[in-house]
């Protein structure tokens, strides 16, 4: 069920990117989509009763049932890249607003051909 929910999040983010010309809304769409992808990857690596992939005094042996650490490592990478995209995108949005006094990409001459 959670995989379907994450797919729904991806589609909502995609709709946000496609349907809006507002830079801030596009960035929110990108972030929602990224969240959906992250949840999906984590859900692929999880199984019922699995423990966090860290050896501690309680979960002491590598023969115990750990969830997939590879999926979590991928998501960590994805989160960091997402942070970089969001920061750079917000700065672009701020610059667009400073120059054209609007966040609307349609109003600054982009996408005139439709």
């Amino acid at each position: 069920m959670i995989r379907l929910a994450s797919l729904l999040l991806i589609l909502i983010g995609l709709y946000g990117i496609f349907s809006s010309r507002n830079v801030i809304k596009i960035l929110i769409g990108v972030n929602v989509m990224e969240l959906g992808v992250n949840i999906f990857i984590i859900s692929v690596g999880f199984f019922k009763g699995g423990i966090a992939p860290i050896l501690t005094a309680d979960s002491f042996s590598s023969a115990m049932k750990f969830v997939d650490p590879l999926a979590q490592a991928m998501v960590l990478t994805s989160i960091v890249i997402g942070l970089g995209i969001t920061a750079l995108g917000l700065v672009f949005a701020r610059k667009i607003h400073a120059q054209y006094d609007t966040y609307d990409l349609g109003a600054i001459g982009g996408g005139k051909d439709d």
Binding site: R3, F60, S62, K65
Partner: peptide, 30 residues
């Protein structure tokens, strides 16, 4: 539609958990 079926055995993560990518070291005890 399922959830909680990502069992490790046979996947690449198996080698990462047991730390035996280059040589088999057996069980790792904390």
């Amino acid at each position: 539609a399922g959830y909680g079926d990502g069992l490790i055995p046979g996947k690449a993560a198996d080698a990462y958990i047991n730390k035996n990518v280059t040589s088999g070291t057996g069980e790792i005890i904390f």
